[in-house]
Nucleic acid binder design. Structure first.
Lengths: 208, 208
DNA sequence: AATTCCAGAGAACAGTTGTTAACTGCATGG
DNA sequence: CCATGCAGTTAACAACTGTTCTCTGGAATT
């Protein structure tokens, strides 16, 4: 692999990325279903027809954005759920990781939160597929945890589902508090931490 | 109150409602930020300019839809959280109420789920305001429950928040499974029930 | 060095959009 | 019964949309 691709394909990928970036920017103040192809090309500074060299439609571009936003997130998931430390330490680290990711990729997070239930079917589907993969990975990680001894498959899946949803909820909360005073951001940390702690407690007593 | 309003204002409210209904229908396949005013009036069968007699913009119409979708939901909230029965019975009833509401008002539920993180600021704000009211009501109901004895204000609020979010998550799940085979719908009931049960268990052991 | 390929430009299309202004007809209040 | 108010109509506007076809310059291939 890593075949140094010619200056031709390199330039193509460059404009393609520029289109993705511009779209992501424009999507901070609207939904994908109202994003126009001309709007995107205008923001990049290329002719409208150039768009078709890279995407069939804005919906197609949306699907590409889903992969950009979620595809590279799988490694993080693993370190979030599994690994060492007692319960409180793991929770603290998970919340910290989420907060950090929202701070470094706010537009991506906003895009996912917005389009997860958004008006474009194919994009909704792409997000659901990725989240389903996340859920499976979390479930696999949970299965290895000694706390989950004796849990059946359905219960593991419902807990994984709960964790993934909770992650997104927390990320969305951080997003809304991004430009808020630090006081409120700490309240978000507090709420998220306590919610995860409550879930954790429920988990420990599940088999009673 | 209840002053039988003249046939003039009656007709006005009628077209206003027709605009709201038509918009709600159109919003099943797109987001509010891409909903055109002409699109709505065309669906109703009135002139585009008639729109301005009722709403400043489609965003304004969206805010009205929020109140229609969530405003009448407050009484239900109360019966969902509080009232009699042991833990499992209350959960079963809550999940049933949510499922029923999704079946009878699917478009409203879809609208809220979609626009909660959608591209129109004022509508997002309106939804957040209503949800904050819900959270306060749930918190008040929780405070009266003997299980919550000894809980401080912050913990009550975080639990109320968790319940409200869980309610929306569940509603969204039911929505996606609306036209799916009954088998999958029962799986949704199962997952939602177990998640609430886990939360309930965590709640009982919170003060350990 | 000659040829093919292709990312992007340019122009034109039919259709759409939000908003304005001036109007019409009918229910309302004096 | 007559004058006023106002929901909804009609017509027109400039601006915008997605998509098509044709063209061009320079990289890639032979």
């Amino acid at each position: 692999m890593s075949h140094t691709l010619g200056i031709r394909q390199a330039q193509k990928q460059k404009t393609r990325q520029a289109l993705l970036d511009a779209a992501l920017g424009l999507l901070e103040e609207q939904s994908l279903s109202s994003l126009g192809l001309r709007e995107v090309t205008r923001a990049v500074g290329v002719a409208p027809t150039a768009f078709y060299r890279h995407f069939r439609s804005t919906a197609d571009l949306g699907v590409a954005l889903v992969e950009e936003a979620l595809g590279s997130l799988h490694p993080m998931i693993r370190t979030t759920v599994s690994s060492a430390g007692d319960s409180d330490q793991r929770i603290e680290r998970a919340v910290g990781l989420i907060a950090h990711h929202v701070e470094t990729h706010p537009a991506h997070v906003r895009f996912i939160a917005r389009e997860r239930h958004g008006g474009v079917q194919s994009v909704r589907q792409a997000i659901q597929d990725q989240l389903a993969r996340f859920t499976e990975e979390v479930k696999a990680a949970l299965a290895k945890d000694p706390v989950s001894e004796g849990w059946n498959d359905d219960d593991l899946r419902m807990l994984a589902h709960l964790y993934v949803d909770q992650m997104l909820m927390t990320a969305s909360l951080f997003l809304d508090a991004l430009e808020a005073p630090e006081e409120e951001r700490r309240r978000v940390v507090q709420v998220a931490t306590r919610q995860m702690r409550l879930i954790s407690i429920g988990r420990e007593h599940w088999l009673d």
